[in-house]
Computed example of a mutant assay.
Amino acid sequence: MNDTLREVFSDGFAAPLGEVIAAVGRGVADAQAALDRASLEATLEVYHDEGTAAATLLRDIGYRPTFYVLPETTCEVQVSMRVGGSNGVDGAANAAPGSPASMRSRPYVTPVDAGFANRFGYQASASAKLTFKIVPVPPPSALDDNRPVPDLIGRTGGDADAALASLGLFAAFRAAGDKPVAREEALKMNVRAQDSPPLALIAIGGTVTLTVA
């Protein structure tokens, strides 16, 4: 978030108050996105059929990664404020005659730190405080009764069948041109297509039809 604010104003330079507030909001949004990405990556690792032995064990015992949210963020920043316009002291140069005073001026803020205080003799404590909560929330309920389909193209029928079985899913086989094929033969052939794309959610006990050749 500090980098986001730094883009808005640098030491000793004022910035519109709205841009400062928006920069703080973008920082909070970036933090939430980072939490979401971490939870999603952990979830995919657990349900990846080629994951580590530890991930397989976690899946077998029913473990699911926790998701987190930022339900509340409080930010206190010490700033110096002035009201003015870009082309005039009161902003009149940018406003139409007779327009309200609120349209002729904008609030600007400058960060108060040690350099600003020494330069302008500003008497105020240079401080900033950011308070936030990170609260765990239940993972998406869709994972209760569904499993993500792995990418099975290029594998043998036997490997694909085992991968689906580890997720509680079943494999059905067919030859090219939708022709029937014996299961014993299909297990030795290579998967060329699957009717459910990778990462699609399928209900536990569901069937994925594989085309082998």
Rank of each mutant, 00 (worst) to 15 (best):
E45P: 08
A182F: 03
A95L: 06
S141E: 09
G85P: 09
F13Q: 10
T209V: 15
A33S: 15
D90M: 12
T73N: 05
G205L: 12
R64G: 07
L17I: 11
A117F: 03
R174L: 07
L152P: 00
N190M: 01
L210N: 08
A186H: 09
T43D: 09
Y68H: 15
L167A: 00
E41V: 08
V191R: 00
A213K: 05
V112A: 05
F132W: 13
I61R: 13
R37P: 13
D159C: 01
G98N: 07
V89N: 02
R82L: 12
T74R: 14
A15M: 10
A124F: 08
I202W: 05
G206W: 08
S125M: 07
L201A: 03
P111L: 14
L201I: 01
A213P: 03
A172M: 13
T156E: 01
I202G: 02
Q123S: 09
R104C: 10
D30L: 15
P148N: 01
A200L: 12
G12R: 04
G84T: 13
V89R: 05
D161T: 01
L167F: 00
V8D: 02
V137T: 09
I134A: 09
A213D: 12
P111S: 11
A171Y: 05
Y47L: 14
G205C: 13
V149G: 00
A172G: 14
Q78P: 14
D3K: 05
L5T: 02
G27D: 11
A203S: 15
P198Y: 06
K133D: 08
V28W: 08
Y68E: 12
E19A: 13
A175G: 11
V79F: 13
S166P: 02
V89E: 06
A128W: 05
D159A: 07
R155P: 00
P16C: 10
V28Q: 14
Y47R: 10
A128F: 06
L169V: 00
T74I: 13
D195W: 05
P136Y: 03
A126L: 06
E50P: 07
V83F: 06
E41M: 04
V8T: 09
G205P: 11
R192S: 01
L201T: 04
V77Y: 03
G154K: 01
G84A: 15
A29R: 15
D195C: 08
Y122H: 09
V137A: 05
A55S: 15
Q123N: 08
A193V: 01
R192M: 00
V8N: 02
M189R: 13
G91E: 11
R119G: 06
D3C: 00
K188F: 05
F116L: 06
M81V: 14
V109Y: 02
L210S: 04
D145V: 12
E7D: 09
N146A: 05
P65Q: 10
